[in-house]
């Protein structure tokens, strides 16, 4: 015993030292990638926003940009669009997920696959297809007999962008909500009905409370993604729909006003990181709560 233990004891201090530092050393390469290509450039953006084109350091650029009407308009539009689109996605996504999960029909699986597929699509695809559906020479106008320049003319405005975002991001709400619905044992719905509860009561009192964490975190994520959406806005190309990312793009590579672009970028990042923090918090706090319940219930579940 001692014969084996002795050499271990002799190398122990150095070994312990190595144990402590090895994981950190292993972490260095991937962290260098993130720090070098993400954190460092982002820090430079913040610095750039504080330096005017003439080289003065200060809040001059900030003052100028933040008070400009185009910025306030873009900010307001971004918030309105993302809140509106998210509301639409959550309502529509919850309804569609409810039907898919609790009143499945032949072909429901195919629909689920389509929903999954949308997640792998680029968002500009929707904007492009909207041109054919609702554009001035689109299907809807043709169907309404207008020909070119028909009666439907909302595409090249905020409503077009809003509807496109609802179309694209609804699947992003549906997936977590469907997963949450799948966690509700069908026996609970059966028992609730046997106790005399009508479908509406079962939905409100049994199903939705279970899906609430998924809905909350899905809502945050959708708010975040719609706020940062660029492809749809770019492709719809509506003159009066300038969002924050669009403004960064314009300032950055159309007018080459880097300091102003950086100010807008910083505002955009702060907003979306705040939303992201809320999302992570909701996910962690409500998610673990539920997971605890799930584990407690799983003990009884033979499946």
């Amino acid at each position: 015993m001692t014969a084996v233990a002795a050499p271990v004891a002799a190398t122990a201090p150095r070994e312990r030292e190595r144990r402590r530092w090895a994981p950190l050393l292993w972490l260095a390469p991937p962290m260098l990638v993130v720090l070098g290509f993400f954190c460092y450039p982002l820090a430079l953006v913040v610095r750039q926003s504080l330096v005017s084109e003439s080289g003065e350091v200060g809040l001059a650029v900030w003052r100028h940009v933040v008070t400009s009407p185009e910025f306030t308009a873009a900010l307001g539009r971004t918030v309105l669009l993302s809140v509106g689109a998210t509301a639409g996605c959550v309502l529509l996504g919850t309804f569609l997920a409810l039907v898919l999960a609790f009143t499945p029909f032949p072909g429901a699986r195919v629909v689920s696959r389509v929903v999954d597929a949308v997640l792998a699509f680029p968002s500009f695809l929707i904007a492009l297809s909207f041109t054919f559906l609702y554009g001035s020479a689109g299907v809807l106008n043709a169907a309404l007999g207008g020909g070119a320049g028909g009666p439907v003319d909302f595409l090249y405005g905020p409503w077009g962008v809003l509807l496109a975002e609802v179309t694209f991001y609804t699947p992003f709400v549906m997936r977590p909500v469907l997963a949450a619905f799948a966690q509700v044992p069908s026996a609970q719905l059966d028992v609730a009905a046997s106790l005399g509860a009508r479908p509406w009561r079962v939905l409100r009192q049994v199903v939705l409370p279970e899906a609430w964490p998924a809905l909350a975190s899905g809502t945050c994520l959708t708010l975040l993604m719609t706020m940062n959406e660029f492809g749809i806005v770019l492709f719809v190309g509506a003159k009066d729909v300038i969002t924050l990312p669009m403004l960064v793009h314009t300032k950055g590579i159309v007018t080459f006003d880097y300091p102003a672009a950086c100010v807008v970028a910083v505002v955009n990042v702060v907003l979306s990181v705040a939303l992201y923090t809320v999302h992570r918090w909701v996910f962690r706090v409500l998610g673990t709560n539920r997971a605890g319940e799930g584990r407690a219930g799983a003990g009884l579940d033979p499946a």
Partner: peptide, 14 residues
């Protein structure tokens, strides 16, 4: 949590 446009801008700046 960072818009892709901002990722692009930051790389341009850096």
């Amino acid at each position: 949590a960072v818009p892709s446009v901002v990722v692009g801008l930051s790389l341009l700046v850096a």
